[in-house]
């Protein structure tokens, strides 16, 4: 069954067409990749799916609902979690608070209850805190629950950000270049980590990545785009042999030897 179905998706910024006529069909439970040279429109696609951009044309159907034009916070509440290329944690809030805020869409109490500190308020705050701590335990981050992200190593920040995205209970997790800025040993940790998440959470993952090591190791299905257009899709093996992909990444062989 398809979880995310994108049809004829186009995004124009003024005269520039960032994404044109994109078709995507993500099966439930898959681990998918999205690659392409710089400026190909990958992040633009993620921004449309997560609600930051409203597509110029086309529809995004998630889990049976059309979601284009919806605000990011309601898209998140519907079950799409996301991380960013440059880590966007709240650096002056503890790790626990970072996770805790992911529950903002179902707090379980009304606007005035924080002022009156009702029973219901305490019960729900307790639920949120317990849930957050549980998640941190699962990710073995419980020891740094009260640290500030700005004081943590980059690799750990990445993990916290992924944990935070998972805290919203997503069905689809969008990872925007999770390996960006990581050292090579961190990258192999990350690969194991994403595999582990995919195996242990009931989740579909779609990731943008530049490092072929990560993509080829993890993804079952890869889509390659260039200048906003799909140029190839298939399994890692198929992609590696595709002449158009090689051309997009390495340039035209003919030009070199001409």
């Amino acid at each position: 069954m398809s979880l995310l179905k994108i049809t004829d998706l186009t995004q124009r910024f003024g005269g520039l067409t960032a994404v044109s006529d994109l078709q995507v069909d993500l099966k439930e439970g898959g681990l998918n990749g999205l690659i392409g040279p710089n400026g190909a429109g990958k992040t633009t696609i993620f921004n449309m799916v997560s609600g930051f951009y409203t597509p110029t044309e086309g529809t995004i159907n998630f889990d049976g609902n059309v979601i284009n034009g919806k605000k990011p916070h309601s898209v998140t509440a519907m079950g799409i979690g996301r991380t960013f290329q440059n880590i966007r944690l709240w650096h002056d809030m503890t790790v626990l608070d970072n996770i805790r805020l992911s529950q903002h869409y179902h707090l379980g109490y009304s606007v005035i209850e924080p002022f009156f500190r009702t029973k219901n308020y305490f019960a729900n705050e307790k639920r949120i805190e317990d849930k957050s701590m549980e998640l941190l335990d699962v990710f073995k981050l419980q020891d740094i629950a009260h640290e500030y992200p700005k004081n943590l190593p980059y690799g750990i920040q990445r993990r916290v950000e992924i944990a935070r995205a998972l805290a919203t209970d997503p069905k689809l997790l969008l990872l925007d270049e999770p390996a960006a800025g990581l050292s090579s040993s961190d990258v192999s940790d990350l690969i194991d980590h994403i595999k582990w998440i995919h195996d242990n959470f009931d989740i579909t993952i779609w990731m943008i990545e530049h490092q072929m090591e990560v993509i080829m190791n993890l993804c079952q299905y890869i889509k390659v785009i260039d200048f906003g257009k799909t140029i190839a899709e298939g399994t890692p093996d198929e992609i590696q042999k595709n002449p158009q992909v090689i051309k997009a990444y390495l340039g035209d062989e003919g030009e070199i030897y001409a």
Partner: peptide
């Protein structure tokens, strides 16, 4: 705390379901 989140990073706040 949603307000503090907006102050620190509004985009992150949106994506973490803060209206």
């Amino acid at each position: 705390k949603g307000i503090i989140a907006i102050k620190q990073d509004e985009v992150a706040a949106e994506i973490m379901s803060v209206d």
